[in-house]
Amino acid sequence: KKYKVVEVKENKDGTVELVVENENGEKKKITLSKEELDKLKAGDTVELK
C-alpha cells in the first residue's frame, strides 16, 4: 500500500514520528530513525507492507 506523509514530528530521542495516510483516508503513525527520514519530507509517498 502507498501512504502519503501528512505530518513529520521530531522526538527528543532522535527518532522521527510520521503520520501517513492512504487513499482511503486511513492514517497510520510510524516511527523512523533520523537516517531513514533523511530522504523523506511532507508530501512524499511511502510504501508500507
Rank of each mutant, 00 (worst) to 15 (best):
K34V: 09
Y3G: 08
V6G: 01
S33L: 14
E21R: 03
V46W: 00
E35G: 14
K2W: 06
V8E: 04
V19L: 12
V46M: 05
E47V: 01
L37S: 15
N11H: 12
T45Y: 15
D13F: 03
V46Q: 03
E17A: 07
I30K: 01
K28W: 12
V8F: 07
V5C: 10
K1P: 12
L18C: 09
V46A: 01
L48W: 00
V8L: 09
E10T: 08
K49C: 15
E35A: 13
K2C: 15
E36Q: 07
E7L: 06
K49F: 00
L32H: 02
D13Q: 02
K39R: 09
K28V: 14
E47W: 01
E23A: 07
K4P: 04
T15L: 05
K9V: 12
K34C: 09
V46T: 06
T31K: 09
K39E: 15
K12V: 10
N24F: 14
K4C: 15
V6K: 04
E17D: 11
K9M: 10
V46I: 15
E36A: 09
I30P: 00
N24W: 14
L18T: 01
E35I: 11
K39L: 11
N24V: 13
E10N: 09
L48E: 13
V46H: 05
L37C: 15
V8I: 12
E35T: 12
G43S: 05
T45W: 14
L48K: 13
E47L: 02
V16D: 00
N24Y: 11
N11I: 05
G25K: 04
K1S: 09
E7K: 03
V19K: 03
T15R: 03
L40P: 15
E47S: 05
N11W: 05
K2H: 08
K2Q: 08
L32K: 03
K27M: 12
N24L: 12
K1A: 10
D13R: 01
I30D: 00
N11K: 05
K9Y: 10
K41S: 08
V19Y: 05
V19S: 07
E10P: 06
N11A: 07
K34P: 09
E36P: 09
K9Q: 10
E35C: 13
V8G: 01
E26A: 06
K2I: 11
K41V: 12
G25H: 05
G14P: 00
K28Y: 12
G25Y: 03
E35F: 07
Y3A: 07
K28P: 00
K49E: 15
E7Q: 06
K29M: 14
V20R: 00
N11C: 14
G14I: 00
L48D: 15
N22R: 04
D44C: 12
L18Q: 00
T15W: 09
Y3D: 06
E35P: 10
L18D: 00
K41T: 09
V19T: 09
D13Y: 03
K49Q: 15
K2Y: 08
S33G: 10
K39H: 11
D38W: 01
E35L: 12
E35K: 11
V6E: 01
K49I: 15
E35M: 13
K39Q: 10
K29Y: 13
K28G: 06
L40S: 06
G14Q: 02
V16I: 10
Y3I: 08
E26G: 05
N22W: 10
L48V: 15
V46E: 11
E17Y: 09
A42S: 08
K49P: 15
E26C: 15
L37T: 15
K41Q: 12
N24M: 14
G14T: 01
V46Y: 00
N24I: 09
K1D: 11
V46N: 05
V19A: 03
G25I: 00
T45Q: 02
N24K: 11
V20I: 11
N11S: 06
T31Q: 08
V8W: 05
G14N: 04
K41D: 08
E17Q: 07
N22L: 06
L37M: 12
K1L: 10
D13I: 01
E10Q: 09
L37A: 15
E47D: 15
E26I: 11
K29V: 13
E36S: 14
A42L: 14
K34L: 12
D44I: 06
K49S: 15
S33D: 12
V20E: 00
E21Q: 05
T31I: 10
Y3P: 06
T45V: 10
K12G: 15
T45H: 05
G14L: 01
E21W: 03
E7R: 02
K49W: 00
V16C: 10
L37I: 13
E7W: 05
E21T: 06
D13K: 01
E35D: 14
D44N: 06
E47Y: 02
K28H: 15
V8D: 00
D13M: 02
T15Y: 11
L37P: 05
L40T: 10
K28F: 15
K29C: 14
V6R: 02
E47C: 08
K9F: 11
K28E: 11
D38P: 15
K41A: 11
S33F: 12
L40V: 15
V16K: 04
I30W: 02
L37Q: 07
K49V: 15
L32M: 14
A42N: 11
N22H: 09
T15H: 03
L48T: 13
